[in-house]
Design a protein around this nucleic acid. Structure first.
Lengths: 136, 136
DNA sequence: AAGAACCCTCTACCGGGTGGAAGCTTTCCC
DNA sequence: GGGAAAGCTTCCACCCGGTAGAGGGTTCTT
């Protein structure tokens, strides 16, 4: 297998947005949106104004992606990432926010289960109109 | 048991929107919104332009409220209510839509369960940064 | 007859993106 | 080297399911 190109790894790989999208699986527009919302700060801009990202940004996007999938809101994510960026261990912030999230997930699951029962009940109760005025 | 009040029940009670809101527990604005979206058709308008509702509208709002609580979308509700209004037995439409809804609820529950596990895993994996750089 | 309570329409905003237009820059291929 | 294609930029508008407020007309109570 041929080596990937140059001899030594550059310290600042300077990924452009398309590459980041390819690597994270997120749409380009969404990444831009996250930048606009302050979730993600590109390492720099090229002379021509292109956003330049680094590995750290990729890591952040991975976090964003997982937590968004768990319905963590953008402002909450912003707070989490800010703390993380500040370099301090943000265990307590994360733990609080994750615990809250688990709580709300449990609630939501209970709600959904209730809905399921309700739907089943509804389905049952509507069975008996079958003989009333069949539409075919 | 005493009879409900007057001698003969009026055929067209002509409820105004505030009364409907009071009875259904829905905000006035939401009821107007449902009218705008075509979910609900007020029986008539007063000379001064007020929406006038009847008992049937109340029944529809009850359906709307329950199904909305189960995340049935507005367009889907519109279809359901249209069929219902047409007078035919809409069992099959409802059954299809409810079955689909239950399917998606099951999916959602599975997703949430997966999230919960993921969160638990996350919570566990972040425990061990406690010694790295404690913020207090 | 006044004032409160009610109702109307219209416009704008929320979150979390997504789509498209118009205009640069970079890359590819001949 | 030159032109096309792909990639990037900003900006504006749209999606859903409402909700808030402005500005003005109507009905009810006193």
């Amino acid at each position: 297998m041929a080596r990937q190109g140059s001899v030594s790894a550059k310290p600042t790989p300077s990924l452009r947005i398309g590459e980041v999208a390819r690597r994270t699986g997120l749409p380009v527009k969404t990444i831009r949106y996250y930048c606009d919302e302050g979730l993600l700060q590109p390492r720099a801009r090229s002379e021509s104004g292109y956003r330049l990202f680094d590995e750290e940004n990729l890591a952040e996007l991975t976090i964003i992606r997982s937590l968004r999938a768990m319905d963590v809101s953008i402002p909450e994510l912003a707070r989490i990432l800010e703390v993380r960026r500040a370099g301090v261990c943000n265990c307590s912030v994360l733990k609080d926010s994750i615990a809250a999230k688990m709580e709300s997930i449990n609630l939501r699951i209970a709600e959904l289960a209730a809905m399921k029962e309700e739907l089943a009940r509804l389905l049952g109760s509507w069975q008996d109109c079958g003989g009333l005025k069949p539409d075919r």
